[in-house]
Design a protein around this nucleic acid. Structure first.
Lengths: 127, 127
DNA sequence: TATACATATGAACACTTGAACATATGTATA
DNA sequence: TATACATATGTTCAAGTGTTCATATGTATA
């Protein structure tokens, strides 16, 4: 029973449980279920966009209304530049859409996913 | 018609649309609907936790199985230290729970909210 | 209790990022 | 087209953050 060089894992041979092999199987199973790294990377990038209080405030302000940049800036007491920068990020992530009306540009949430994600998060926070 | 000093807003008096006042009303309405800053701050903090690819990978690996620190480290090819650090963040945010079994500590997703949030994000990403 | 194993923690460092400021672009009107 | 308004963009900088390395704590067994 000299399995010392088999692998680095501890195998409690006395108990005969083969604990390590069980873990290996689970790890392999998880590995197969795990989405591609690229997708998980994109997923993290998505949440990263939600992970800033300024952007969350902006998103929430558009929960039921479309608003123009200046509206948001005054509403949240932010500089126009800051709002515009953040809106660009939200635009890039396809979280908001926009339409032009004269000199103003009206922004609104892009789809129901956005509302759902925020709502889910809210439920978790409000516990 | 010298309304120059009234306010900085442009009021197209010619059209008589009182555009500015309409915006003011909307802004006030949104302001009343907006949750407290503190809540939105917490919400952003929550999403911030999801907004890191390492943590997302860790969370996803526990989607259907409980795993110990070492499992995760090998599975995702991360250092034990890094996993432990990230798990602490996930623990603090109440996204994962854990139980001890001998020398190992098994982690798993804390509740269905976590799964829901990830799934919602996935839907958005997979478009 | 001495040892090995599993996990947690602390400190240092490189990297990322949001805010501010200045400026550019785009649009409507006189 | 000159002007004013609305929005967008580029740059700089301070603050925040993930990883690594070293080390500490906790647990089981000889």
């Amino acid at each position: 029973m000299t399995e010392d060089t088999l692998r680095t894992e501890s195998i409690p041979a006395a108990e005969g449980k083969e604990f390590s092999q069980e873990r290996e199987d689970i790890i392999q199973s998880v590995q197969e279920q795990q989405p591609d790294d690229e997708i998980l990377y994109d997923l993290a990038e998505l949440f990263k966009v939600f992970g800033d209080s300024t952007r969350i405030k902006i998103l929430y302000s558009m929960f039921e209304n479309e608003l123009c940049v200046n509206d948001i800036a005054r509403l949240l007491n932010l500089s126009q530049s800051s709002v515009s920068h953040q809106l660009r990020i939200l635009k890039t992530s396809k979280l908001v859409k926009f339409r032009r009306e004269g000199k103003s540009i009206f922004y609104s949430l892009d789809d129901e996913h956005v509302r759902s994600i925020i709502s889910m998060g809210m439920e978790h926070v409000e516990e």
